[in-house]
């Protein structure tokens, strides 16, 4: 399943798609988007890579076992949620920075949570796709 056009295109598309996915993640709080869709797009970029080359190379490009993304993502999500407990507030209470940042306004734990979602989705899709594709190749 290797074609020159596809593999070349993929090589250039990978960073673009990743960038787009981060964009979706960041704007999720104010526009349609969010960690979930962002994670999907990011996963898609690596999945394309796997189809264009093969799973081994995709794994190499990713550097980290996708399962780790799942664990880390969940950990980030639960940490962002637990943070408020230490401030004596309810579990998962949103804690926001005072200052507004130029692109996406105030940063708060819900945003961190969304990052966790993004990573989990990325890890999940890649785990599934890679292990399925390895079966096929």
């Amino acid at each position: 399943m290797t074609s020159v056009i596809l593999s070349t295109a993929t090589r250039y598309m990978l960073p673009l798609l990743l960038l787009f996915s981060v964009f979706l993640l960041l704007r999720g709080h104010s526009e349609p988007g969010g960690g979930f869709v962002g994670g999907l797009v990011a996963a898609a970029s690596f999945a394309f890579y796997a189809f264009a080359y093969n799973v081994k190379q995709a794994r190499r490009a990713l550097r980290i076992n996708p399962r780790v993304f799942i664990g880390v993502g969940l950990l980030i999500a639960v940490s962002s949620a637990t943070y408020s407990l230490f401030l004596g507030k309810s579990f998962m209470t949103g804690i926001w920075t005072e200052t507004e940042f130029p692109v996406f306004g105030a940063i708060g734990t819900p945003f961190i949570f969304d990052v966790g979602v993004y990573l989990v989705v990325l890890g999940v899709i890649l785990t599934i796709v890679f292990s399925l594709a390895e079966g096929e190749q």
Partner: peptide
């Protein structure tokens, strides 16, 4: 159990 599970996954 959630955190236990996550740590075990990691």
């Amino acid at each position: 159990p959630f955190i236990t599970g996550i740590i075990l996954i990691l």
